[in-house]
Amino acid sequence: MTVENLQSQRTNVASGLPPLNGLKAFEAAGRHLNFRLAAEEIGVTQGAVAQQVRGLEQTLNAKLFERLPRGLALTEEGRKYLAPVQRAFRLIEDATDEIRPQQAVLTLSVTPSLAGKWLVPRLGAFLQSHADLDVRVVAGEGLANFQSDGVDIAVRQGRPPFGPGLTAELLFPFEVYPVCSPALQAGKHPISKPEDLARQVLLHDAHGLWPLFLEQTGVAEPMAMSRALKFSQTSLALDAALAGQGVALASDPLVEDDLAAGRLCRPLEITMKSDMGFYIVAPRSPRNADHVKRMRDWLIAQSRADRELN
Rank of each mutant, 00 (worst) to 15 (best):
L268A: 02
E27L: 09
A50V: 02
V219R: 12
E98F: 11
A305T: 00
R10V: 02
K188L: 08
V110T: 01
L249R: 09
S274C: 00
T2F: 05
L91D: 08
A83T: 14
N5D: 13
K230P: 03
W210C: 14
F213W: 15
S148A: 07
E77W: 02
R227F: 06
E195C: 03
A260E: 15
G246C: 02
Y81T: 15
I270S: 05
R90W: 12
G218D: 01
E308C: 13
R87P: 01
N61S: 13
K293H: 13
A305E: 03
N34M: 04
L133K: 00
T96P: 02
L214S: 04
D257F: 12
D97W: 14
A237L: 03
G16C: 12
P121C: 06
Q46Y: 03
A243Q: 09
T107M: 01
V151A: 07
L82E: 12
N34R: 03
L6A: 09
L203D: 01
C180T: 13
V247M: 07
V176P: 00
L254E: 13
A139N: 10
Q157Y: 13
D132P: 04
I92A: 15
F65Q: 03
A50H: 04
Q7V: 12
P222M: 02
A14T: 06
Q200F: 03
A305W: 01
V151D: 03
D290F: 02
Q147E: 14
V151Y: 05
R199C: 11
T111R: 08
A228L: 00
R199W: 05
A168K: 05
A240E: 01
L212M: 07
E215T: 15
S8K: 00
C180S: 06
